[in-house]
Amino acid sequence: MNEPILEVQHLKTYFYLGTDMTTELRAVDDLSYTLHKGECMAIIGESGSGKSVSALSILRLVSYPPGLIVGGKILFHGQDLMEMDDEEIMKIRGSKISMIFQEPSSALNPVVTVGKQIVENLLRHTSISKEDAWKRAVELLDEVGIPNPEQRVNQYPFEFSGGMQQRSMIAMAMSCNPEILICDEPTTALDVTVQAQVLEQLDKLRETHDTALIFITHNLGVVARYADTVKIMYGGKVIEDGPTDAIFHVPHHPYTLGLIQAVPRLDLPRSHGLHTIPGEPPDMSKIPENCCAFAPRCKYATEECRTKRPQPETVGEGHHCSCFHMDLLEDERNEVVRSHG
């Protein structure tokens, strides 16, 4: 693999809730990973598992109150983003590390033309002239496959379809050739066919610009197709991570296995039904410190899981899992993996 560009070490982002801000919610609890040049890393998890917050934390976009990054380091080329002053981090945002968001219709400024929003980014981070910035905006829109970019550049977001809005978001995020593009559920709000177009677009950009992608999603199909490595988050922690193949073929955590089983199957008869993980996502503010957050929903859970926090163990090449009962999973895993081919 290429050189590492981003190292997240023991990142902790907590939220303080309630009227006196005494309820502590550990949205991201001790997250560590390394991202390499050109790598596509997926972060998977249910709503509220801390995956979006972990992404916002990288650019220090979590606003206080209620959110606060309470610990950890985020090393970008060895430089800690946490230690930077506001002006320095602002220079990184949108130029070296960009972000695209879930709802393109609300993530674009509704009263400013799409072109101006791209130009704004270019003028902020590069020294090109206004005129060249507008030309560049047209090129960027063309590059992400928007028809008639010369006209489109002067239109407002509401005149664009959802897919086109997301593609202009991508154009905007890619305008300064960032080294890292963080995609926070970029396709969740789009039609399935449009999703595919947007994903292809991102993949193409990754290849042509060698941009590293952090892909936050709950769509396993997307992950299997595009990601090099996968992190599975639950209750603010990574419970399993590793190369995509390993995660899909030899999952070690009961939650990962549950997620794979929950993918709807078109090849099975309808009577087969959909597989679900019993129970509900945890109330993040009520997870005790010393336990496995998944224990209440896990059929393998024992007293140990409720009183101790499992630590990550290496289970394969670059593959780690935090679970006390990985060995108990083997039979079920073999069956699931066999049936999923």
Partner: peptide, 13 residues
């Protein structure tokens, strides 16, 4: 609003 978050993410002051 989300678009203000986008604005911050673009590094605007």
């Amino acid at each position: 609003q989300d678009y203000v978050r986008t604005a911050w993410s673009k590094g605007l002051n």
